[in-house]
């Protein structure tokens, strides 16, 4: 058999083997067996030097063609096999993408903190400072300085935890107002503050009473502050807490540290004002107390009440949270039952 025929036969055999190969590894073996140093085609080519020199170019050309054809075939087949292998691998790697992911734990913010920070952020945005004070206060700052002298009938309105006859657990955050008023330098601008914090009353704990609760009081003192400014500010606050559609109404009331004093109702966020169980049929819900800071409070802090005036307001985050989320027992806020706390995990 001539070399040319040999080549054709070898190539045909190689093509059959290549087509039958099922793995890259088999292909590599085929390559080695035909094109390797001791491969069949290589061996054939080695025999070229023994043939007639006249035929060499023809045989040489044929041999190269055979080698190139097989190489191309192998490479093509390899590519196909690799692609198939990848497809198989991907197929095998398929997972149930609906299975739960790995555990990440994130603690929730206490619902009262959420309410308080929302309010803090609103007032920070309007240029107020947040000022915190002591939870244990003197009788003097807690009562006398907010226009509640000894034997004032309004002292009945708040039962107090005393530590000594002169020291008590603050019943409101108002002593911070008195302390800030006396230190504020009005030549450097108006005083705009809110004071959030814990307060204490001598109450028996039940569904609607707690001996410890929270309060946020706000105060603005400057020249030419009007009651209309108070109304506008509280309107903003009510909308922020209960929604854009809310309205407020002011009712006359009494607090020793403000004059005039008002209670502020917000239109019921549940029924919109038609009357329901949340608003007890009135369409309105009492949410805070407010008023124009009493001149005595200013004067006692050394502020000239003929020049400066302003307003103050106070609200209870506990009550707001109860109303807003329908919480029916104030004690929930202080038991820290995870089943309660985690209900307020959602942001926004």
């Amino acid at each position: 058999m001539g070399i040319e025929e040999q080549l054709t036969t070898v190539l045909a055999k190689a093509v059959i083997e290549t087509n039958a190969a099922e793995s890259v590894k088999e292909l590599e073996a085929i390559r080695v067996s035909y094109l390797g140093k001791k491969g069949e085609i290589t061996s054939v080519l080695k025999g070229v030097k023994d043939i007639d020199p006249k035929e060499r170019p023809i045989i040489g050309k044929k041999a190269n063609e055979v080698r190139d054809e097989l190489t191309a075939l192998l490479s093509h087949k390899k590519e196909r096999l690799e692609k198939e292998a990848l497809e198989r691998q991907l197929e095998n790697e398929t997972i149930d993408v609906t299975l739960p992911g790995k555990q990440v734990s994130k603690g929730q913010t206490h619902v009262l903190t959420q309410i308080m920070e929302d309010i803090e952020d609103l007032f920070l945005g309007m240029g107020y400072q947040i000022i915190e004070g002591n939870e244990v206060e003197s009788d003097y700052y807690n009562f006398e300085r907010v226009n509640l002298p000894q034997n004032h009938p309004a002292r009945d309105m708040q039962d107090t935890f005393y530590i000594t006859p002169d020291v008590l657990l603050r019943t409101h955050t108002s002593p911070i107002q008195a302390r800030t008023l006396e230190s504020h330098d009005f030549s450097k601008g108006p005083l705009k503050m809110i004071s959030p914090g814990k307060v204490y009353r001598r109450d028996t704990d039940d569904a609607t009473h707690s001996h410890q609760f929270h309060q946020i009081e706000g105060m603005v003192i400057a020249e030419n502050i009007t009651m209309a400014d108070l109304k506008g500010t509280l309107e903003l606050l009510a909308k922020k807490m209960f929604g854009e559609d809310r309205e407020i109404r002011l009712r006359p009331s009494y607090f020793p540290f403000t004059e005039p004093s008002v209670e502020v109702d917000v239109s019921c966020f549940k029924c919109g004002g038609k009357g329901c169980n949340v608003c007890k049929g009135t369409g309105w819900i009492e949410i805070l107390g407010a008023g124009m800071t009493h001149p005595n409070v200013l004067e006692m802090s050394g502020v000239d009440s003929s020049k400066y005036s302003g307003f103050a307001f106070g609200l209870g985050p506990d009550r707001i949270a109860m109303l807003k989320y329908g919480v029916d027992d104030i004690r929930n806020f202080y038991l820290n039952d995870q089943r309660f706390l985690q209900q307020f995990k959602r942001k926004g």
């Binding site: 400072q129 601008g189 108006p190 705009k192 400057a222 209309a228 506008g232 006359p252 008002v262």
Partner: peptide
């Protein structure tokens, strides 16, 4: 002032915001 305000009616008070030089909060 309180007597005037309450007889006049709080619902008739305008709603404004304090206008003072703005200090960032």
């Amino acid at each position: 002032i309180e007597e005037v305000a309450r007889i006049h009616g709080y619902h008739k008070l305008p709603s404004t915001l304090p206008h003072s030089e703005s200090v960032p909060g």
